[in-house]
Protein backbone atom coordinates (compact mmCIF):
# COMPACT_ATOMS: atom_id res chain seq x y z
CA UNK A 1 0.00 0.00 0.00
CA UNK A 2 1.76 3.12 -1.25
CA UNK A 3 -0.97 5.67 -0.85
CA UNK A 4 -0.64 8.55 1.50
CA UNK A 5 -3.55 7.51 3.68
CA UNK A 6 -2.56 9.68 6.62
CA UNK A 7 -2.77 12.79 4.44
CA UNK A 8 -6.10 11.60 3.03
CA UNK A 9 -7.40 10.96 6.54
CA UNK A 10 -6.37 14.41 7.77
CA UNK A 11 -8.06 16.08 4.76
CA UNK A 12 -11.21 13.98 5.22
CA UNK A 13 -11.37 15.01 8.88
CA UNK A 14 -10.83 18.69 8.04
CA UNK A 15 -7.61 18.78 10.09
CA UNK A 16 -5.69 19.98 7.05
CA UNK A 17 -7.10 21.77 4.01
CA UNK A 18 -6.13 20.78 0.45
CA UNK A 19 -4.27 24.11 0.23
CA UNK A 20 -2.24 23.22 3.32
CA UNK A 21 -1.55 19.73 2.00
CA UNK A 22 -0.02 20.77 -1.35
CA UNK A 23 3.30 22.18 -0.06
CA UNK A 24 3.64 19.21 2.27
CA UNK A 25 3.14 16.81 -0.64
CA UNK A 26 5.87 18.69 -2.49
CA UNK A 27 8.20 18.08 0.47
CA UNK A 28 7.59 14.33 0.66
CA UNK A 29 10.02 13.28 -2.06
CA UNK A 30 12.97 14.68 -0.10
CA UNK A 31 11.88 13.25 3.21
CA UNK A 32 13.76 10.36 4.69
CA UNK A 33 11.74 9.25 7.71
CA UNK A 34 13.91 9.19 10.81
CA UNK A 35 14.10 6.36 13.33
CA UNK A 36 12.24 8.20 16.16
CA UNK A 37 9.20 8.64 13.92
CA UNK A 38 9.39 5.03 12.76
CA UNK A 39 9.64 3.83 16.37
CA UNK A 40 6.51 5.86 17.14
CA UNK A 41 4.62 4.50 14.12
CA UNK A 42 5.53 0.90 14.98
CA UNK A 43 4.53 1.54 18.62
CA UNK A 44 8.00 0.62 19.92
CA UNK A 45 8.08 3.93 21.78
CA UNK A 46 5.39 6.45 22.63
CA UNK A 47 5.60 10.22 22.44
CA UNK A 48 6.41 10.51 26.17
CA UNK A 49 9.40 8.16 25.83
CA UNK A 50 10.65 10.13 22.82
CA UNK A 51 10.69 13.33 24.91
CA UNK A 52 13.58 11.95 26.95
CA UNK A 53 15.65 10.94 23.93
CA UNK A 54 17.87 12.70 21.43
CA UNK A 55 15.61 12.72 18.38
CA UNK A 56 17.61 15.15 16.26
CA UNK A 57 19.14 12.41 14.10
CA UNK A 58 18.66 8.67 13.59
CA UNK A 59 22.24 7.88 14.66
CA UNK A 60 22.13 9.78 17.94
CA UNK A 61 18.64 8.49 18.64
CA UNK A 62 19.72 4.87 18.21
CA UNK A 63 22.69 5.23 20.57
CA UNK A 64 20.63 7.11 23.15
CA UNK A 65 17.73 4.63 23.04
CA UNK A 66 20.12 1.68 23.44
CA UNK A 67 21.99 3.30 26.33
CA UNK A 68 18.76 4.05 28.16
CA UNK A 69 17.47 0.54 27.53
CA UNK A 70 14.38 1.76 25.70
CA UNK A 71 15.15 -0.18 22.53
CA UNK A 72 16.95 -3.48 22.00
CA UNK A 73 19.49 -4.15 19.23
CA UNK A 74 16.87 -6.29 17.49
CA UNK A 75 14.31 -3.49 17.59
CA UNK A 76 16.84 -1.02 16.27
CA UNK A 77 17.74 -3.36 13.42
CA UNK A 78 14.05 -3.79 12.64
CA UNK A 79 13.70 -0.01 12.40
CA UNK A 80 16.70 0.20 10.05
CA UNK A 81 15.15 -2.49 7.83
CA UNK A 82 11.79 -0.71 7.56
CA UNK A 83 10.83 0.44 4.08
CA UNK A 84 9.23 3.82 4.73
CA UNK A 85 6.07 4.40 2.74
CA UNK A 86 4.36 7.63 1.79
CA UNK A 87 2.55 7.90 5.11
CA UNK A 88 5.82 8.01 7.05
CA UNK A 89 7.34 10.48 4.59
CA UNK A 90 4.28 12.66 5.01
CA UNK A 91 4.45 12.38 8.79
CA UNK A 92 8.13 13.41 8.68
CA UNK A 93 7.13 16.44 6.58
CA UNK A 94 4.50 17.35 9.21
CA UNK A 95 7.10 16.98 11.94
CA UNK A 96 9.86 18.91 10.16
CA UNK A 97 7.46 21.66 9.13
CA UNK A 98 6.36 22.11 12.75
CA UNK A 99 2.76 21.21 11.85
CA UNK A 100 2.60 18.42 14.43
CA UNK A 101 4.74 17.11 17.27
CA UNK A 102 5.28 13.47 18.30
CA UNK A 103 2.30 13.57 20.65
CA UNK A 104 -0.09 14.80 17.97
CA UNK A 105 1.29 12.33 15.44
CA UNK A 106 0.82 9.47 17.89
CA UNK A 107 -2.87 10.38 18.22
CA UNK A 108 -3.32 10.76 14.46
CA UNK A 109 -1.56 7.46 13.67
CA UNK A 110 -3.88 5.69 16.10
CA UNK A 111 -6.98 7.41 14.74
CA UNK A 112 -6.28 6.90 11.03
CA UNK A 113 -5.30 3.25 11.48
CA UNK A 114 -8.72 2.66 13.05
CA UNK A 115 -10.53 4.73 10.39
CA UNK A 116 -13.34 2.70 8.91
CA UNK A 117 -14.00 2.67 6.06
CA UNK A 118 -10.48 3.47 4.87
CA UNK A 119 -9.71 7.11 4.06
CA UNK A 120 -9.83 6.66 0.27
CA UNK A 121 -13.24 5.02 0.46
CA UNK A 122 -14.45 7.77 2.82
CA UNK A 123 -13.25 10.51 0.45
CA UNK A 124 -14.91 8.89 -2.58
CA UNK A 125 -18.13 8.26 -0.67
CA UNK A 126 -18.24 11.84 0.58
CA UNK A 127 -17.52 13.31 -2.86
CA UNK A 128 -20.17 11.02 -4.38
CA UNK A 129 -22.74 12.48 -1.98
CA UNK A 130 -25.03 9.45 -2.33
CA UNK A 131 -25.36 9.83 -6.10
CA UNK A 132 -23.35 6.73 -7.10
CA UNK A 133 -24.89 3.22 -6.96
CA UNK A 134 -21.61 1.34 -6.42
CA UNK A 135 -19.13 3.61 -4.63
CA UNK A 136 -16.98 0.58 -3.75
CA UNK A 137 -16.14 0.02 -7.44
CA UNK A 138 -14.96 3.64 -7.70
CA UNK A 139 -13.16 3.60 -4.34
CA UNK A 140 -11.25 0.41 -5.21
CA UNK A 141 -10.27 2.03 -8.49
CA UNK A 142 -9.10 5.20 -6.77
CA UNK A 143 -6.98 3.21 -4.31
CA UNK A 144 -5.17 1.59 -7.22
CA UNK A 145 -4.99 4.91 -9.09
CA UNK A 146 -3.38 6.66 -6.11
CA UNK A 147 -0.93 3.81 -5.59
CA UNK A 148 -0.06 3.97 -9.29
CA UNK A 149 0.59 7.71 -9.15
CA UNK A 150 3.10 7.04 -6.39
CA UNK A 151 4.55 3.92 -8.01
CA UNK A 152 4.85 5.13 -11.61
CA UNK A 153 4.95 8.94 -11.33
CA UNK A 154 6.39 9.41 -7.81
CA UNK A 155 3.42 11.66 -7.20
CA UNK A 156 1.52 11.27 -3.93
CA UNK A 157 -1.93 12.83 -4.04
CA UNK A 158 -5.03 13.35 -1.97
CA UNK A 159 -8.65 13.30 -3.09
CA UNK A 160 -10.68 16.36 -2.23
CA UNK A 161 -13.64 14.91 -0.34
CA UNK A 162 -15.85 17.83 -1.33
CA UNK A 163 -17.98 17.19 -4.45
CA UNK A 164 -16.20 18.78 -7.43
CA UNK A 165 -18.35 21.13 -9.45
CA UNK A 166 -16.69 22.36 -12.63
CA UNK A 167 -16.33 26.15 -12.39
CA UNK A 168 -17.86 28.23 -15.19
CA UNK A 169 -14.48 29.44 -16.42
CA UNK A 170 -12.81 26.00 -16.17
CA UNK A 171 -12.49 25.57 -19.94
CA UNK A 172 -11.24 29.12 -20.55
CA UNK A 173 -7.74 27.60 -20.46
CA UNK A 174 -7.14 24.46 -22.45
CA UNK A 175 -8.24 21.37 -20.53
CA UNK A 176 -6.96 18.01 -21.80
CA UNK A 177 -8.84 14.81 -21.17
CA UNK A 178 -8.12 11.12 -21.57
CA UNK A 179 -10.37 8.16 -20.84
CA UNK A 180 -10.61 4.41 -21.22
CA UNK A 181 -13.49 2.00 -20.89
CA UNK A 182 -13.50 -1.18 -18.83
CA UNK A 183 -16.45 -3.39 -19.74
CA UNK A 184 -17.83 -6.81 -18.96
CA UNK A 185 -18.91 -8.05 -15.55
CA UNK A 186 -18.06 -4.54 -14.27
CA UNK A 187 -18.52 -1.38 -16.31
CA UNK A 188 -16.44 1.68 -15.69
CA UNK A 189 -14.99 4.49 -17.75
CA UNK A 190 -12.10 6.19 -16.03
CA UNK A 191 -10.26 9.26 -17.12
CA UNK A 192 -8.84 12.59 -16.18
CA UNK A 193 -9.09 16.27 -16.96
CA UNK A 194 -6.12 18.54 -16.45
CA UNK A 195 -5.09 21.99 -17.49
CA UNK A 196 -2.07 22.26 -19.75
CA UNK A 197 0.56 22.78 -17.04
CA UNK A 198 -0.60 19.87 -14.88
CA UNK A 199 -1.15 17.61 -17.91
CA UNK A 200 2.40 18.22 -19.12
CA UNK A 201 3.83 17.63 -15.62
CA UNK A 202 1.98 14.32 -15.24
CA UNK A 203 2.91 13.16 -18.75
CA UNK A 204 6.56 14.12 -18.25
CA UNK A 205 6.73 12.23 -14.96
CA UNK A 206 5.18 9.09 -16.41
CA UNK A 207 7.20 9.08 -19.62
CA UNK A 208 10.42 10.39 -18.05
CA UNK A 209 10.74 12.55 -21.15
CA UNK A 210 11.28 16.28 -21.23
CA UNK A 211 8.04 17.96 -22.30
CA UNK A 212 7.12 21.59 -22.84
CA UNK A 213 3.80 21.27 -24.63
CA UNK A 214 0.85 18.94 -24.99
CA UNK A 215 1.98 17.05 -28.10
CA UNK A 216 1.31 13.51 -29.37
CA UNK A 217 3.81 12.02 -26.94
CA UNK A 218 2.28 13.81 -23.95
CA UNK A 219 -1.23 12.63 -24.82
CA UNK A 220 0.06 9.14 -25.58
CA UNK A 221 1.86 9.03 -22.24
CA UNK A 222 -1.28 9.75 -20.26
CA UNK A 223 -3.30 7.31 -22.37
CA UNK A 224 -0.68 4.65 -21.69
CA UNK A 225 -0.68 5.45 -17.98
CA UNK A 226 -4.45 4.87 -17.85
CA UNK A 227 -4.05 1.76 -19.97
CA UNK A 228 -1.57 0.32 -17.46
CA UNK A 229 -3.64 1.27 -14.39
CA UNK A 230 -6.84 -0.01 -15.95
CA UNK A 231 -5.16 -3.27 -16.93
CA UNK A 232 -4.12 -3.76 -13.32
CA UNK A 233 -7.69 -2.98 -12.25
CA UNK A 234 -9.02 -5.63 -14.66
CA UNK A 235 -6.68 -8.16 -13.02
CA UNK A 236 -7.96 -7.06 -9.60
CA UNK A 237 -11.54 -7.53 -10.83
CA UNK A 238 -10.64 -10.95 -12.26
CA UNK A 239 -9.62 -11.92 -8.71
CA UNK A 240 -13.25 -11.23 -7.76
CA UNK A 241 -14.48 -13.41 -10.65
CA UNK A 242 -15.38 -10.40 -12.78
CA UNK A 243 -14.17 -10.75 -16.35
CA UNK A 244 -13.62 -7.46 -18.12
CA UNK A 245 -12.16 -6.13 -21.35
CA UNK A 246 -10.28 -2.90 -21.94
CA UNK A 247 -11.36 -0.47 -24.63
CA UNK A 248 -9.03 1.78 -26.58
CA UNK A 249 -7.85 4.89 -24.75
CA UNK A 250 -9.35 8.17 -26.02
CA UNK A 251 -8.45 11.80 -25.64
CA UNK A 252 -10.10 15.14 -26.21
CA UNK A 253 -9.88 18.78 -25.26
CA UNK A 254 -12.27 21.19 -23.56
CA UNK A 255 -15.23 18.80 -23.38
CA UNK A 256 -17.47 19.01 -20.32
CA UNK A 257 -17.73 15.38 -19.21
CA UNK A 258 -21.12 13.71 -19.33
CA UNK A 259 -21.83 10.15 -18.34
CA UNK A 260 -24.21 8.01 -16.38
CA UNK A 261 -23.14 7.51 -12.73
CA UNK A 262 -20.52 10.19 -13.24
CA UNK A 263 -18.25 11.15 -10.39
CA UNK A 264 -15.79 14.01 -10.62
CA UNK A 265 -12.98 13.94 -8.08
CA UNK A 266 -10.60 16.83 -7.57
CA UNK A 267 -7.10 15.53 -6.97
CA UNK A 268 -4.39 17.55 -5.25
CA UNK A 269 -0.71 16.90 -5.91
CA UNK A 270 2.54 18.79 -5.53
CA UNK A 271 2.37 19.66 -9.24
CA UNK A 272 -1.09 21.23 -8.93
CA UNK A 273 -4.66 19.96 -9.10
CA UNK A 274 -6.48 17.93 -11.71
CA UNK A 275 -9.67 15.90 -11.87
CA UNK A 276 -10.40 12.20 -12.18
CA UNK A 277 -13.64 11.34 -13.94
CA UNK A 278 -15.36 8.04 -13.28
CA UNK A 279 -18.57 7.02 -15.00
CA UNK A 280 -20.56 4.00 -16.13
CA UNK A 281 -20.28 5.00 -19.79
CA UNK A 282 -18.13 7.17 -22.03
CA UNK A 283 -18.14 10.74 -20.80
CA UNK A 284 -16.57 12.66 -23.67
Amino acid sequence: MNSNYLAQYLVNEGKLTPAEIKPLLADIADKDPQLPLMALKLRMLDADALKGLDTASSGDFGKDALQKGLLSHDQLQKLHRQMPGETLRFAQALLDGGRMDFGELQSEFAAYEKASPDPVYSAVEKAAAGQIDDPELYADYMTLFMDSLVGFLHTPVVIDPEPFVIPNDYFSDNVYEVSQRIEGDANLVSGMMAKEKEFISLAARYSQEEMNEVDDLAVDSMEEFFNVVNGLYCIQLAGKNKETELGLPRWNKNIAPRGDQQLLLKIHADLGSFAVVLAADEFM
Binding site: G231, C234, I235, A238, E243, T244, L246
Partner: peptide
Amino acid sequence: LSSAGTPQ
Protein backbone atom coordinates in the same frame (compact mmCIF):
# COMPACT_ATOMS: atom_id res chain seq x y z
CA LEU B 1 3.20 -7.45 -23.92
CA SER B 2 -0.02 -5.97 -22.66
CA SER B 3 -1.84 -4.27 -19.80
CA ALA B 4 -4.73 -6.70 -20.33
CA GLY B 5 -3.11 -9.60 -18.49
CA THR B 6 -6.11 -11.19 -16.84
CA PRO B 7 -5.72 -14.94 -16.22
CA GLN B 8 -8.24 -15.53 -19.01
